[in-house]
């Protein structure tokens, strides 16, 4: 009975989408200048859609709790793996060597002939270069390394390649984005393309841009990957979520990021 009720509630959420959408409160002109850093043409970073108190948390590297992870990543960088080698053995100056790297992922991987996210790349390096074991995406080592590497691209334009070998994966990701799924039978585009800037119940819908992920989310109270965010979205529309690193999500990540190409990288962002 409760389950049925849930679906019913969710249906009314769709009704809201259809009928009761209303524009977000006007942004004051004084803030427009500052917001320009988070916009490219009509493309808006998720930053634009968060509350001032959340933005303030991102604006100050000390107030941003993700920087605890950045520091951890920095320390891990020179920690030797089982074969005695560390990240620093090959990349002595991460500030230089990792500059711009996160902005270009996911990338085509000739070895698997598939796209590869930064997390998958980190895991490959851990295994092949340091003799270590693969790590999970949301715990300990991974979020620390992914935000530390991501930070080195901060302020640079997001720039994923979608032509050449990436093209078929881009098409798959695009198809996912526009495909209805879940019991609510809605696609990514319904919220993030058609109704961005409008409210769904109490929440302001964003354009679903990925330039700040991995991000610290107030809800999670920790740093999480973009795929964790995808899972949350899919659960909300009552669709079966995929696992972190699943091909479906890797391709979707490529497509979603390509939509935001040109936006400045914000890793580690703070989001609600």
């Amino acid at each position: 009975m409760t389950k049925y009720k849930t679906i019913k509630t969710a249906r009314s959420a769709i009704a809201l989408l259809g009928m009761a959408v209303f524009a977000s409160s006007a942004t004051s002109s004084a803030m427009a200048d500052k917001m320009d850093d988070y916009k490219v043409g009509d493309i808006h970073s998720g930053y634009v859609y968060t509350a001032p108190s959340t933005r303030a948390m991102q604006d100050d590297d000390f107030e941003n709790p993700a920087f605890l992870m950045v520091e951890k990543g920095e320390a891990l960088w020179s920690k030797p793996g089982p074969n005695g080698k560390s990240c620093a053995s090959c990349h002595e100056n991460p500030e230089e060597d990792m500059k711009g790297v996160s902005a270009t992922y996911p990338k085509y991987d000739p070895k698997t002939k598939k796209m590869m996210t930064i997390e998958q790349k980190i895991n490959r390096e851990i295994v092949e270069k340091t003799g270590g074991k693969k790590v999970k995406w949301e715990k300990g080592v991974m979020p620390a390394l992914s935000v530390f590497i991501g930070l080195q691209s901060r302020g640079m334009p997001m720039n994923v390649k979608i032509d050449g070998e990436a093209a078929p994966f881009y098409e798959k990701g695009k198809k996912f984005y526009y495909t209805r799924r879940g019991q609510l039978n809605i696609a990514c585009k319904h919220c993030h393309e058609d109704y961005a800037g409008k409210h769904i119940r109490a929440d302001l819908l964003s354009q679903g841009m990925a330039n700040g992920f991995p991000a610290y989310r107030l809800k999670w109270q920790k740093v999480g990957s973009l795929h964790r965010r995808f899972r949350g979205c899919n659960k909300n529309i009552r669709a079966e979520p995929y696992k972190q690193g699943a091909e479906e999500y890797v391709n979707l990540e490529l497509y979603v990021k390509s939509r935001g190409n040109g936006l400045k990288m914000e890793i580690p962002a703070v989001r609600r």
Binding site: T50, A51, P52, S53, T54, A56, M57, R217, L218, K219, W220, Q221, R272
Partner: peptide, 12 residues
Amino acid sequence: LPEIAENGNTVP
């Protein structure tokens, strides 16, 4: 406190 907290888990 913020007039509206976006998420109750972390309210400055």
